[in-house]
Write a protein that binds this DNA or RNA. Structure first.
Lengths: 236, 236
DNA sequence: GGTCAATAGTTGTATATACAAGTTTGCAAA
DNA sequence: TTTGCAAACTTGTATATACAACTATTGACC
């Protein structure tokens, strides 16, 4: 039997976690070495090592070659948040989702957008506006500029059937992304589409995505603050 | 020589990454098995395995015991965002940071907050208001309820010297946290402290943190949208 | 006392091997 | 044809071993 119900490395991991969570092992205190753990638990060094390794990847431990393994500094206020696909989110809530395609055309770029997309001023790019609905109520406006070089068939798509991001993910595998999240007041046209007053604070996510060939697209997602929030739940 | 400049498992990882990024290996397509890679690269199975393992942890591959290893579905719109400590952020920007302690007292809880903190209605809890400044301009108001059972000495601290979260991290090691991010209009008092008009959209982060003994604190961070944004940059 | 080199201890990489456990395939029997 | 089982393949866990690379300590020498 290799599997004693729970794997040996898991037992060691839980042992260490417990010591840290209980406070018995404080921040920066030294953790038993691979050899010590191996002996304590009667396992091979590689098995003890795996426990330490995985906890290090999870951020609970810090290891230094030659020096040893230590309890990590608890991430001060640095936390991780997941930005999800609006369509998935709505489905998970058990609500009805649909998308309305407002705009799908080619536009000539102003300077700011051109720079962000890695194109020249006045060059043409594809532009789409898709409005996402939850239970027939508009919840998010997606405005997106797309590089025509990298995604030549963008304008022939039907974004009521597939979300732009889904389509882009298939066309040009993402290698990188940046996000910026702000609270803003939307302009008149956007407010009209979202059916909100111009004084309604909105959560705005700007996302820029890269494939290995360059910037693929630049998306602005605008949602009314009272209808939409970003949430996360994480365990250390 | 064990280290051929870059480790063997790293060479294999890069080989696989390149195949995926170039599109040669599409989503869901099968990746060579551990044994095949081991033979191709003239390494042991355990070394090939490590490459596959780490790429799986990074989310590029998916493995199923018995079936094989496959290129993962590109995370549709699910991305990761890091919420950082405001003080760290300001320091990293090279700006001057300081904190002003507005309130530090014991309050009796209303129902909503009591539930969230895991306390009974009308029970006492500690409450602090700290205003964070960047270059002498207020940038974030932190309002925080703290469980008196878990952090009895909270009221004796000086939060111009140490941030509440920093202090709490030391006192009660975190095991869990949730966040909710919304765009809101702040109330009059908050607006006064942040020196903004009541129509300024604000980014509001609500953070609830746990230690192994229960909910430690409930924090509301409010920042003017035009002064503060959350940002992230990630590579796949 | 200060400096430097040897040494012991620790993590990092790599291999070869063994068996457990899950999936897929193909073949034989009903 | 369908069912069911066996075999082949694949990933998962675990061990024992070897050497590389780095750190911290110790002790000898100046």
């Amino acid at each position: 039997m290799t599997q004693t119900k729970t794997a040996k490395f898991s037992v060691i991991k839980e042992f260490i976690c417990q010591k840290i969570e209980s406070g018995e092992w404080q921040q920066h205190s030294k953790v038993p070495s691979e050899n010590e753990l191996a002996e304590q638990f009667s396992v091979s060094r590689m098995t003890a090592r795996r426990a330490l390794q995985e906890l290090t990847e999870q951020g609970l431990l810090v290891r230094t070659q030659g020096a040893g393994t230590f309890v990590a500094t608890f991430k001060s206020q640095s936390s991780i948040l997941e930005i999800r696909n609006i369509a998935d989110e709505i489905h998970d809530r058990g609500h009805q989702y649909f998308a309305k395609q407002i705009t799908l055309t080619s536009v000539s770029l102003d300077e700011e957008v051109a720079i962000l997309l890695g194109l020249k001023n006045n060059e043409q790019a594809y532009y789409s506006q898709v409005l996402h609905f939850e239970n027939n109520s508009p919840i998010q406006l997606e405005q997106r500029y797309v590089s025509p070089k990298l995604v030549p068939n963008y304008l022939t798509q039907d974004f009521t059937q597939i979300t732009p991001h889904e389509y882009l993910s298939n066309e040009a595998p993402l290698t990188e992304a940046t996000h910026e999240i702000e609270a803003v007041l939307a302009n008149k046209n956007v407010c009209k589409l979202l059916v909100i007053s111009t004084s309604t604070p909105c959560l705005q996510v700007k996302r820029r995505t890269w494939s290995s060939h360059g910037v693929v697209s630049l998306a602005t997602l605008t949602s009314p603050g009272h209808k939409y929030r970003l949430g996360s739940h994480l365990k250390f």
